[in-house]
Amino acid sequence: MGTDLSGLRKLVGKESGEIPAPDKVSTSDIRHWCEVMDEDRTPCHETNWEEKHAPPAMLMAWTMPPLWTPEPRATVAPHERVLKALDEAGYDGAIGLHLDQEFFRPVSVGERLSYRVSLDGVSRDEVQTRMGSGIQVDLLYTISNSQGDAVSRQRYSLLKFKTLHPVK
């Protein structure tokens, strides 16, 4: 223990605003994803969804933040604030625990998705794991298309833990 997480728990239940995906859905990004996933080299473009639709399991990729930005990014969304606070409290490691995906609509090439992230929960106590002691964070992603219709809902849990040798 030793870290006061009560401030973080106040953020539980809060949702971010609508965050636009950095890019439109494009065949080039779909190809890159398929190349990495298709170990047996099944031609991705021959399956019916590549023609018009992106692979559903790739949905999370469209919501991923940029690797680098010229100006430091502001942390405004509740989930970003929690993750940053945990980083500063010494929980510098992160590992995904599980991901539940629900798909409602296909995603077409050329669409610009957007998403909201709601902070579903922060574990009350430190969880003791072999990776080190950590805090579990539960997030709920709601991904929508340009018409505002929900495309998918994804529950994502991750463990922020104190690494043995801090990676800084």
């Binding site: 950095p22 439109k24 494009s26 065949t27």
Partner: peptide, 9 residues
């Protein structure tokens, strides 16, 4: 692929 804004990014 054709040139895309996403690959440029």
């Amino acid at each position: 692929d054709e040139v895309t804004e996403s690959d440029i990014r």
